[in-house]
């Protein structure tokens, strides 16, 4: 599954070596160099390429779109075409050190089950997601009275693949419910800059969140 906002913003399109979207760089920084990594919904392979070449991981990917898969395999990345929601079940427990799900959880039919699969397959999971509780999103709904269309959520309501949007607080609740531990949190505000505000404000000022997770 492609990181779903990319189609609109053009972000994440194949970039030169080293150049990588700031949020992907922060995801990559949560991954231990030299580890075994599965990138779920690896898109055109920008993150996977970075992980393999800059952090020397043994990297694999799953991607739904054929275009994405072809781009990945053509640059030597190990990527299979598949539907993560069905295919994750094939992998044995603890097959990977890290399983990465970047900007894709909200497009899953069953995010709760996917979350559990991530921490089953991987000893750690890295999940990044757009925050529907971000103040601009709230303002857009409050004052505009319409479903928000922002840079991060660049689709009209009738065409969006983001069928399970949540706020950071919702996500934390889900993790607590299903017994997933949050080992590290990075909140990105405007312009993909990490915020240093009080954690109580994360759900308001964070445009997206990146979480390092593991099984309790």
């Amino acid at each position: 599954m492609t990181a779903v906002m990319d189609a609109r913003t053009g972000e994440g399109a194949a970039q030169g070596h080293g150049a990588i979207r700031p949020d992907l760089r922060l995801v990559a920084e949560m991954v231990t160099p030299g580890s075994r990594v599965l990138d779920v919904g690896c898109g055109d392979g920008a993150l996977l390429h970075h992980l393999v070449h800059e952090r020397q991981v043994d990297g694999r990917g799953i991607e739904l779109s054929m275009d994405g898969v072809r781009q990945c395999v053509s640059q030597g990345l190990s990527v299979i075409q598949g539907d993560a929601e069905a295919d994750l079940a094939d992998y044995p427990d603890d097959s990977f050190d890290f399983v990465v799900l970047s900007q894709t959880l909200q497009a899953m039919r069953d995010p709760r089950r996917v979350l559990l699969e991530l921490v089953r397959i991987g000893r750690h999971a890295v999940v990044s997601l757009p925050n529907f509780g971000y103040w601009r999103v709230r303002m857009s709904l409050l004052w505009g009275g319409r479903m928000p269309v922002t840079k991060r959520l660049g689709y009209a309501w009738w065409e969006t693949p983001n069928i399970h949007l949540c706020t950071i607080r919702d996500f934390l609740d889900l993790c607590a419910d299903v017994g997933v531990r949050i080992d590290r949190t990075v909140i990105l505000g405007r312009h993909d800059r990490p915020t240093r505000a009080h954690p109580a404000l994360n759900n308001l000022i964070g445009e997206q969140g990146i979480f390092l997770l593991s099984r309790k």
Binding site: R60, M66, S78, I80, Q81, G82, P92, F96
Partner: peptide, 21 residues
């Protein structure tokens, strides 16, 4: 091919898979 990919995933093999249109 997909059945083979699933089997390879089940042993955590290093595998790429492309369906050409």
């Amino acid at each position: 091919s997909r059945a083979i990919v699933h089997a390879l995933n089940a042993v955590a093999a290093n595998v790429s898979f492309v369906e050409v249109e």
